[in-house]
Design a binder for these strands. Structure first.
Lengths: 217, 217
DNA sequence: TGTACATCAGTGAACGCGCGTTCACTGATGTAC
DNA sequence: TGTACATCAGTGAACGCGCGTTCACTGATGTAC
């Protein structure tokens, strides 16, 4: 049973976008890998931008649904700030892992998508993400903020994005890093171990003492 | 007194590469801003890759010289692990700030350059960086490692790259983040404040307790 | 049940465009005798 | 000091290529009467 054209395009696009980014992946590469006609992308998705947004939604829709449920569960539980922070990141990253289905390229795609929320080069994607998923983002940020009580709004803002950076970079380069790790330390690490280490450092960084914002001498 | 063509190209390239990345910046944009002939890039630098490497060297050569001196000074001093870590990152980031001369786009360029050491899409740059500046990188890593004594090699490896990620992301998106910060919190932050906050979180994350590497449940 | 038409998924070939690069050329400066 | 030649910085126009997109078209399926 041959998969429908739309799905085969999305499957191929997901992998290629993850591996080489949006700009450096051509529609010819995607349609080639998918075994469909070049014009099929524009027929089904209208444009390359449309395809990028479709790929985004196929990942983010289940992710945000799962994350929202997880965060709402968490809000009811009475646990320490520390455990809550761990659970928040576990919720986000396990959900992402689940959707990526163990495929590293898909997790890299997730990191690229988050990154592009800051990046002006994919302006349409930034708009799409913020318009489409703002409520869940807000929920996530609020949950974090609740459990980092010693900071004022601006301090939290900077800290939050520092953590985002750590997460995005680590996931984006997970393939390069596991390769180096295998070569240097003879350890074959998978995504679950990487994510586990990542969560530990993220939470520790979230809990780091607050420093007043002032100019660097 | 009109600047020489080579310098004017490098100046423009630095800014444009910082603002839009290597792939998404065309030679026509650069030569346009520099006010020189399109063919001048290939005449002076051989190719676009050659230009990228020249831009890299103009930033990294003074950076690595300064950083090396700073690290060697530091090795003599008898200070705590914590203070040493602070000084290591201060050395790196103040040197980068100095070379960027307060121009945010130049600091973004620095972040892009570090990032491309991991990124396969600019393979030539990755090779160039590792071949050209490996000794200073090693020195930097060794200095870090010395002051994070409770980790084994592999744990240090992962932690180190998590910190790199935080740094690269924060600097890469410093313009977007300062813009959001100004809009949301009515605070006009400059690079020195951002770097100061960054160093605090980097060091805290470096000092975070070690966690055994195992699969995530 | 049969026929005419509409809709839809998909195709092959071409379009215009921007890209990095190339090349023959110009004009100024330096050098040898 | 003058002349002939070589070298060098820079130029204008074109080249070939890969890109996203478009368009006329095909063949299959659905629908109305």
């Amino acid at each position: 049973m041959k998969k429908a054209t739309v799905e085969r395009i999305l499957d191929a696009a997901e992998v290629e976008f993850g591996a080489h980014g949006f700009v450096e992946t051509s529609l010819r590469t995607i349609t080639g890998k998918a075994g469909v006609n070049l014009a099929a992308v524009n027929y089904h998705f209208g444009s390359k931008k449309g395809l990028i947004q479709a790929v985004t939604d196929r990942f983010f829709e289940p992710l945000t649904v799962g994350l929202q449920a997880h965060l709402q569960e968490l809000a009811k539980a009475e646990i320490s700030h520390h455990d809550a922070l761990v659970q928040i990141y576990r919720g986000l990253l396990l959900e992402a892992l689940r959707i990526a289905q163990g495929n590293p390229a898909r997790l890299v795609l997730f990191a690229r998508l988050v990154n592009s929320a800051y990046n002006q080069s994919q302006g349409h994607l930034r708009k799409h993400l913020t318009h489409q998923y703002a409520p869940v983002f807000m929920l996530f940020i609020q949950a974090m903020r609740e459990h980092m009580p010693s900071m004022d709004h601006e301090q939290f803002f900077w800290r939050f994005h520092q953590l985002m950076g750590m997460m995005v970079f680590t996931l984006s380069n997970s393939e390069a890093l596991t390769a180096i790790c295998a070569a240097e330390y003879a350890q074959q690490r998978g995504l679950p171990e990487i994510v586990q280490q990542l969560i530990a450092t993220l939470v520790a960084a979230a809990e780091a003492p607050v420093v007043a914002i002032e100019k660097l001498a």
